[in-house]
């Protein structure tokens, strides 16, 4: 644990092209351990694409990605020059847990099975132990009475809380949130944000793409404003929200207020 000071995630000049369209242009960002970083910006600015490239749901075209100081990607023209053994690569990817905009719970599994399926099958944790961990996590997101129901019987907010528990069950060191409240009815947003706030309070490193400005203001250590595939401005919540410098950031904040 000597290198606990290494940034949790660091990217250097990450670029991504879809054909001739440049979705990400030289995105260099750092998330320190224990930090909560929020990415804001208009839709189409590349926020989600960037977050999804970190755990390889998207393939970047060029740039470097470090996870806790270890180089995971060093790409040029889409080809990764880093040749990690499969096992080692998987270990690095497993340090990241992800929560999706549309939850993506497994509909054919009960809440409990949603949370235990990966620990049992990927980590090979004994079933009884995995269920114990899962019950604790489900309790933590406030859904103990729902362990045996199927996701279709849950509200969107409850589904998203289960999704958070499911990601936590793999004991990640950083949680990636891809617009976790954007698909929710307004009255359900609060319960999900409350779980996320608690998680931040417990010291979890979090990287959050969000449209919830009040959440970013209250919880984030650092706010990143992305515009047209570039990092346009980085700062503390106070700097970003009370003293925006970039013209587009000012416009963006005006629009959503």
């Amino acid at each position: 644990m000597e290198n606990t000071k290494a940034p949790m995630i660091q990217t250097v000049n990450v670029c991504k092209n879809f054909g001739s369209l440049e979705v990400l242009k030289n995105v260099s960002l750092t998330v320190e351990q224990g930090e909560v970083v929020c990415i804001i910006g208009p839709s189409g600015s590349g926020k989600s694409t960037y977050l999804r490239s970190l755990n390889h749901l998207e393939k970047i075209t060029s740039g470097k990605i470090y996870i806790e100081g270890t180089l995971l990607d060093d790409r040029e023209h889409g080809v990764n020059k880093v040749k990690l053994p499969k096992e080692e690569k998987n270990q690095l990817l497993l340090k990241m847990g992800m929560v999706f905009q549309r939850f993506h719970l497994f509909p054919h599994k009960t809440v409990l099975d949603n949370v235990t399926i990966a620990p049992i099958n990927v980590k090979k944790i004994p079933k009884s132990q995995a269920e114990q961990i899962a019950r604790d996590l489900i309790k933590r997101v406030g859904l103990s009475e729902k362990v045996d129901v199927y996701p279709s019987k849950l509200s969107g907010g409850q589904q998203q809380r289960v999704a958070i528990a499911r990601a936590l069950a793999m004991q990640p060191e950083i949680m990636l949130f891809d617009e976790p409240t954007s698909a929710l009815d307004p009255e359900l947003v609060g319960e999900v944000l409350a779980v996320m706030k608690q998680l931040a309070k417990d010291g979890m490193t979090m990287f959050v793409v969000t449209h919830e400005m009040s959440f970013a203001r209250e919880v984030a250590d650092k706010v990143v404003f992305m515009y047209e595939g570039e990092v346009a401005e980085i700062g503390t919540p106070t700097e970003i929200f009370d003293n925006p410098k970039h013209e587009k950031l000012k416009q963006f904040l005006n629009k959503i207020d």
């Binding site: 390889h56 749901l57 990817l93 497993l94 999706f100 993506h104 990966a118 999704a163």
Partner: peptide, 9 residues
């Protein structure tokens, strides 16, 4: 598939 992948499957 993405959710499964993000859980290490």
């Amino acid at each position: 598939l993405e959710a499964a992948k993000s859980l290490g499957m």
